[in-house]
Each structure stands twice: as structure tokens, then as C-alpha cells.
Simulated scan of single mutants.
Amino acid sequence: MFWLLTMIFLFWTIILVDFHKGFKTLSSIDHLPFRDEKLLISVIIAAKDEEKSIKQTLETLLDQKHVNLEILAVNDRSTDSTGSIIDNLAAHHANVHSITIETLPSGWLGKNHALHIGAQQAKGTYLLFTDADIYFHENVVSRAITFLKNENLDHLTAAPNLRAGSFFLKGLISFFLFGFGYLKRPWTANHPSKKGGMGVGAFQLLTNACYEGIGGHHAIRFRPDDDLAMGLRIKKLGYRQNLVTALRSLSVEWYPDLPSAFKGFEKNAFAGLNYSVLFALLAIAGVFTSQILPFITIWSSRLPLQMISAFTIVLLFYLYALTLRHLTTYSNWIVFGLPIFAVLFIYMLSRALLLTFLRGGIEWRGSHYSLKELKKYYRNSEEE
């Protein structure tokens, strides 16, 4: 057991070096200078049953200054008042365009298809893909486009502030970001090589030429992790990309409560593990061994086990605190809930995988997508 814990400690030591190097490459656009942008930017939003948030999102976009925006709001088969809200705003604002989708063609996921339809009607030199529940603070779009042009980028994606109410929800979200950090290494978006890459659904700004060059959403038409898939594809094909943070300029309530978070995780859990049962089992075992086991063995009666466990726990707390500092606005006190959040994460991942197998696929935005289809299109998108 001592040697296992020593290996875990060495693993986190390596991750610590990577975190320090990676986070240093992440810039914040919250307070960057900006200039007027005359070229047209097409903002494309897919909205399905978003009556609680779509009005605020569109109004905060309409309030953006120093940019020339057209807003294409795509009502994707909504059964609530989303469509009428969009239509009403479009009637009062010439730069808001309402697009309605009645049916979903086979071979597409709903959101990807809606964004694809919106992009087909876009006239801008730049495209901004975003979600229907994002709050855009003052001048964030002008800051982003200025940064993109100054750095000569093809694609800029921004991490927003993920608002959450309860301690446990904040903990689960930040734990997810922590795991995402060491597994996906999002800062690879800022490396010049074609490896890695990143895409955040809240804010994906890219040139129209880049979008067309990667094959648009058609190339990722059956990927539930469409934002990440797009970012990876952009980087793989050699376009210049950057990930920034916008914790004071963009915000979203990712999930209102824990049950919603568990449900929301269903669509991405297996996709994030490449639809591999082996990867899923390794992920569950890995989280338990590396992030829960030290909190158990610290109670051992053997001093060497206690010491290596304590060192590992301190290292984990520090790594978690780095994640909180750079990717959230949460209090650092959350770090002390790490073992609890690890247990919640294992439950959430196990639940998502079990439901995916029992249902034979995922339920998303009112549609069922079979696991067989998801695997098929995942392999095809990787080969393209």
C-alpha cells in the first residue's frame, strides 16, 4: 500500500508541474482594452425550451457596444414559449433573426443541427457560437474580437463563470473542472502544435473561413460534446486557437441543483470517455484510488502510510485550489470537501454510464440517440 500511495503522490507531483505551466498560459479578457469592430459578427444560438433564459441572453447581446452584431436565434423544436420570445425580440430589433426548426433529420443531434442551420444563414466575417442561457457582460464581445485579431487567431474560446447556489453543487462543478484539467489539459489550446485543443460551448468565436475549413457542424454532427469536438478539430487541422477566461464578463448557471447536474452529465459522460467501457471503469477506479484512498489510509496505524497520505492530501488540496483560483469565482474553503465531491463524482459517472447502457443510448433535448449510432459517428468523425 505504501508504494501505491508513493506512486499516487508522484503522479500528482507531475500534475502540479503541468498545472503551473498550463495556467500561466491562460489569459483573462475581463479587463483587456478593446477597439471598435466594424466587420459583421454573426452570433448563433440554439435554443430548445429555454423560455427562462433566452430573453436575458438576447438582451445582454443587444447591449454589447463597439461591435457590429447580427444575432441568429434558432428555436429548435421548443414546446414552451421560447419561439414567441425570440419572435417578439426579432420584431423590435432589426439585427435579431428568428429561425424555427420543426423536425430533426436523421444523423444529427438537435443542438448541432440547429447551430448548423444558423451558420448557413450567417453573413458575418466572424461567427460566435454560444448557448441560450449565457449572460454577456459589458463589452465582452469587443474585448474578445480585439484579442483574437491582436493574436492573429482563427478561434478563441472563453471559459465563463459557472454560477452555482449550494456548497455541494459548487463542489461538484469545481471537482469536474479539476478532473477536466488533468485529463484534457485545456491549456493545450494555447500551444502552437496540432495536439490537444479546447472548445467551451458558452463562447466559441472563430473566423468564417476557419468554420468552413473544418467542415462546420456537419463534421461533428453526432457528437454530444460538440464544443470540445469542434475545438479539437480546429487544432488538429492546424488553425490558430486560444483559450481564455472571462469569469467577470461571461456567466451562466450551469445547473440549478445537484439532480439537474446528474441528469446533465448523462449526455457527456460516455462521450468524454470515447465510448469505451474500459476507460469508464479505469476512470472510476482512478478517481477512487488517487483522490479518495489517501483520505482513508491517513487513518492507518502505520506512520509511513500516514505521512505519505498526508503529503498527498496537501498536494491534492493545493491542486484543487489552483483550479478554483483560475477557473471559478468560488471560495477556497471548497477544497476541504474534495473527498466528498470525489464520491459524488463517482456516483454521477456510474449513474450516467448505467443509464446509457440501460437505455441503449442517451436522452438529450427531447430526443433519443442510440449508443450504436453514437459510437459509429464518433469513429467516423475521428477518421475525417
Rank of each mutant, 00 (worst) to 15 (best):
L162A: 08
L162K: 03
R163Y: 10
R163W: 14
A164T: 01
A164C: 01
G165T: 08
G165K: 11
S166Y: 11
F167T: 01
F167N: 08
F167H: 10
F167Y: 15
F168W: 05
F168V: 12
F168E: 12
L169N: 08
L169D: 06
K170P: 05
G171L: 01
L172A: 06
I173S: 00
I173N: 04
S174D: 02
S174R: 00
F175E: 08
F175I: 04
L177Y: 14
L177S: 14
L177K: 09
F178M: 09
F178I: 01
G179C: 14
G179Q: 15
G179Y: 15
F180R: 15
F180H: 15
G181Q: 14
G181K: 07
Y182C: 08
Y182W: 10
Y182R: 08
L183S: 10
L183T: 14
L183P: 00
L183I: 14
L183K: 13
L183M: 06
K184A: 05
R185V: 14
R185A: 15
P186W: 10
P186M: 13
P186C: 10
P186V: 12
W187F: 05
W187V: 01
W187A: 01
W187M: 01
T188N: 11
N190I: 06
N190P: 00
N190R: 08
N190W: 07
H191S: 12
P192K: 13
S193V: 07
S193Y: 15
K194N: 12
K194C: 10
K195A: 09
G197V: 03
G197D: 13
G197I: 02
M198R: 12
M198Y: 10
G199H: 04
G199K: 06
G199T: 05
G199S: 02
G201L: 03
G201F: 03
G201I: 11
G201Q: 11
A202D: 12
A202L: 13
A202R: 01
F203L: 06
F203G: 03
Q204G: 07
